[in-house]
């Protein structure tokens, strides 16, 4: 409703919001890492053997896709590259990835 008079825009608020969201991501995956660490420590041999079962091709491909994804997000004008990416900026008056860049 704040659109009634003027568009509310606060870049610092967007940046703060993005950092706070990253905290939740850290803690979300923190739980997973705790579980991983406990079992990695308890079953070292099993983890070593299991690593041999993995497909190198799929692993490499996955890494490449993830790195490309991060790289395109870093581009200041990624909205031209991938118009659909802007669908992700929900409630942000300003693309969050760009406000991270400017810091």
């Amino acid at each position: 409703m704040s659109m009634l008079v003027e568009i509310h825009r606060d870049d610092l608020a967007s940046k703060t919001g993005m950092w706070l969201f990253l905290f939740t991501e850290m803690l979300l995956f923190g739980g997973l890492f705790v579980v991983y660490t406990v079992y990695r420590f308890r079953n070292q041999v099993a983890f070593h053997l299991a690593a041999g079962e993995l497909s190198v091709v799929i692993g490499t491909l996955n890494t490449v896709i993830l790195l490309t994804s991060s790289a395109t997000l870093q581009q200041p004008d990624n909205r031209k590259l991938f118009p659909f990416l802007s669908a992700g900026e929900c409630g942000q008056p300003h693309p969050p990835q760009r406000s991270l860049d400017s810091g």
Binding site: L20, F23, T24, E25, M26, L27, L28, F29, G30, G31, L32, V35
Partner: peptide
């Protein structure tokens, strides 16, 4: 809310993974 809730989030996802994929968490 910000710092505690993600932990239940991942825990519940692990339950889902355990029930559907039979991973022994």
């Amino acid at each position: 809310q910000l710092l505690a809730t993600p932990i239940i989030g991942i825990t519940l996802l692990l339950v889902v993974a355990e029930r559907t994929l039979k991973i022994g968490f």
